[in-house]
Structures are given as C-alpha cells and as structure tokens.
Amino acid sequence: MAQYAKPLARLVGEFEKLPGIGPKSAQRLAFYILRLSEEEAKSLADAIVEVKLRIGYCRVCYNFTDQEVCDICRDTRRSDETICVVADPRDLIAIEKTGEFRGKYHVLGGVLAPMEGIGPDQLKIRELLARLQTQEAEIKETVIATNPNVEGDATALYLARLLKPLGVRVTRIAHGVPVGGDLDYADQATLIQAYEGRREM
C-alpha cells in the first residue's frame, strides 16, 4: 500500500479486516473518514472503544449488555414463566423486534456442531439448566428458537432431552413456508415441516 500515506494505509488495512469489506470499499471508507470533522471521527473511535470496554454478557441470560444484568432480565413487566432459548444475541434482537414475546431469554452463544467439534460445554447449556433449577419464580416453558437447520435442530433435540426430565414444557418454534412465500417455490423439506406443523382452524 505504498500509494497511501502511512496512517491512511493503516486505516485502509483495518477496514479491510471487516467482514464483507474488500480493498475498494476499505479505501472508500477510509477516504470518507478523512473528510469527517475531528469531532465526528473521535465520536466514531470512541464508539468502537466503548463497545469493546463496556459490553459484556448478562449474568442471567448471556445477552450482550453494559450492565451486570441486562434490561430484559430486569424488566419486571416481562413474564418469568417462559424462557426463549436462542443461539445468538442477533436472534434475540430478531424476536424482540416482533414485540410478541413477553418472557425472558437465554442466549446459548452458538449451536452444537459435531463436525466442528462444538459440544454442549462450549455453549451456555449448563447455565440454562442451572437457571431452570434454581430460579425462584417457576419457569413453566422453554421455547427453543434455534435456526431451522441441521445444527439448530440437533441443538433443539439435545435440549429437549435434557430439559424434559425437569418437568418443564419444551416447545420449538414452528418452521414452514415463509410469509409472502410461494408453495411452488418451497422445497420438499420445508413443506414436510409445514405440513406436519399444520394447525386446526
């Protein structure tokens, strides 16, 4: 990157490390930042540093938070009876955006992947069990909302095996034809799921 002045080359290099950013986009972003006011640039830099310093995991549900216990877990208006188990904080946000779910969450931090050697120990499964066993308020239902793919399904099966003996109701989010989708374009595996999960009208 001899064509750039050193600090600029460094910035371009840093941007290139980001997902989905190639050399051209990195250059564009770096030049954009060069044009920013010092204030704006500082604010961006601060935001990056702050997110690294202040964001940690919630002690209860392992969602990202800047406190010891996250806002959702502390929200007394939310029900303690239902826990929605998700793989990733991004999944939590997706469900939260629907505004439908009024219980609490548990973030596993991944899914079981036998071929990659990711076992239950690498996930927050032990913590989920502990939560179910110790939490004062009775947890009546766990909704398993992992992705409807092989690993997500395997994780759900594993959790069901583990949780059912505790006397908790274990449910799995439905999968099937997407809203606005087209039956003709749905694949066989999806249609089977949609058919099996049909509902009385």
Binding site: P178, G181, Y185, D187, A189
Partner: peptide, 11 residues
Amino acid sequence: TTSRLSGATEP
C-alpha cells in the same frame, strides 16, 4: 430465508 435452495443445501 427466501432462497429456494436454503432447505436443499443442508447436510
């Protein structure tokens, strides 16, 4: 999610 290949391309 809307890809016609999403289900077929699972292990």
